[in-house]
Write a protein that binds this DNA or RNA. Structure first.
Lengths: 208, 208
DNA sequence: TAGATTGTTAATCGATTAACAATC
DNA sequence: TAGATTGTTAATCGATTAACAATC
């Protein structure tokens, strides 16, 4: 295995991917680290350092081929394959995640939704059925599921996480307001909306 | 004005706040940096350094009073006052933000929702009306609005941000998939869900 | 070829950790 | 008082920036 890449670098990769996608759409064929750095408000040095963690994608005197670099970063981020996602908790946030447009084009496919509310049973979101929690185990065992999004209240997030981990899920996208403890070999990515809002609040209160 | 605090520290503050809130609920009266560090999986040294950016909240030989520290961090994060929020874009994500339970208790109040879909006109979420975009200007001028959440497609996010900024909004909580450029004195906090999902995808693909 | 720009090494800067004197 | 634990200084570590030789 390669040497581990620092979290700071990994955080920046999706942003590079996004900007390169834009450039591609605009028909830009090549770009130098310098002009990309101006667009993104980072240093050219940082861009070159970041990319060289993964390989030499550029060419001296030329810069980077936009399409090629976009594709390579896609591969680095694992976007060159399909990811099957289930969403547990079909409240407002769960529905938002379920419907989020941008995911499909990146290879993330919603394959099942789960809730405890019997009124939701059998309903569909984008053609994908909402199932009850007692169907979860069977579903995971008989379908390939790569990622489990948890959009449910914090007091049930922990037990639910344990359950899906015991069923073999290796990746949890957690929206519940707890830091889930994951065993070795399981990845948890947290999205804490209120943390983000508090950071905003902090910065606002510094303005005066 | 005090010296600026590093972003890394600010990112950690909401997490401290969360853990201290939990401890408070559990009736814990005091805690040392050491035992808090074990719960949070960080170093005790980092906790003390972080806190001392803002002041000395502890006591030698005793540790920190949980309730007091929780309150002080709340003040640092600006949670000691009310924040009026409007949400522009009442799609799935907008509704999720509009309904998010945890906000109210932290002093964040939803005061208005805006969309372009005429079918939504006059409907309410949690007693707060959904208005049309042509009502936005009047609303902002005649009501105190602290934060504007943008939960809309990326191609309209930029112009909408410019508009609310021109109307005096100083804080934007942006969920659209673009990095908004904000003038001096305006804060933009981005929540890029797909960036987060890509980071998860990256980590998953490293597992094998 | 000459000019441009990378890949990479070296220098700087900042953040984290360790250590310990101050003190409750 | 003696023990515990902070606040803070010093040491280490890592990340960012600068510089430049390699090379397209």
């Amino acid at each position: 295995m390669e040497k581990p890449i620092s979290p700071a670098v990994i955080r920046r990769m999706p942003r590079y991917y996004r900007y390169l996608g834009e450039l591609m759409n605009q028909g830009v064929e090549r770009i130098s680290s310098k002009s990309l750095s101006e667009k993104m408000h980072v240093t050219a040095s940082q861009i070159r350092q970041d990319l060289n963690n993964f390989g030499g994608f550029g060419q001296q005197g030329y810069g980077y081929n936009v399409k090629y670099l976009h594709e390579e970063i896609g591969k680095i981020l694992g976007l060159d394959r399909e990811h099957a996602i289930i969403v547990i908790g079909v409240g407002n946030l769960g529905q938002a995640v379920a419907n989020y447009r941008n995911f499909k084009g990146l290879g993330f496919n919603m394959v099942g939704f789960f809730d405890i509310n019997p009124n939701l049973k059998g309903k569909k979101i984008g053609g994908v059925p909402i199932m009850m929690m007692n169907e979860l185990e069977d579903f995971i065992k008989s379908n390939k599921v790569d990622i489990c999004a948890l959009t449910l209240p914090k007091d049930v997030a922990g037990p639910t996480a344990e359950k899906v981990i015991s069923l073999g899920i290796k990746a949890i996208w957690n929206f519940a307001l707890v830091d889930l403890e994951a065993p070795e070999g399981v990845i948890v990515e947290n999205v804490h909306l209120s943390d983000s809002l508090m950071q905003l609040s902090y910065k606002v209160s510094k303005l005066d």
